[in-house]
């Protein structure tokens, strides 16, 4: 499989990264080069192989249902580029 500049534009949109046409055109061969290289995995016979789920075998632990966090609004908002009246503020969203 090889990607077109339309696909790269679509991927950039999915990833929310602004890109000029020039940047996109520059990325097309780079991505194709890398993708062409990773596609050598197709050679590997993986019939009946389960995809790896946990790199070191262990069970998922479950937490007890206790309120141990919260009430730290100052800390939560401290680094916000824009916070108003205890909220994060973002450019208006029109639904």
């Amino acid at each position: 499989m090889s990607v077109s500049s339309e696909q790269v534009r679509h991927i950039a949109k999915l990833a929310r990264i602004g890109m000029s046409d020039a940047e996109i055109d520059a990325l097309v061969p780079e991505l194709n080069n890398i993708l062409g290289w990773v596609e050598q995995l197709a050679e590997v016979n993986t019939d009946g192989v389960e995809p790896l789920t946990a790199v070191i075998e262990q069970k998922l632990r479950l937490r007890e249902d206790q309120i141990t966090d919260g009430n730290i609004r100052e800390a939560v908002l401290a680094n916000a580029p824009e916070a108003q009246h205890g909220f994060f503020a973002v450019p208006k969203v029109i639904e």
């Binding site: 499989m1 991505l31 990773v38 995995l41 197709a42 590997v44 389960e50 995809p51 790896l52 789920t53």
Partner: peptide, 24 residues
Amino acid sequence: MIGTYVLSAGFYDAYFTKAQKVRA
């Protein structure tokens, strides 16, 4: 960009699932 592409519709199994099998 690579990561978004290999997870995107239609490519997930060919890339990501395959890679997790080879990883196994």
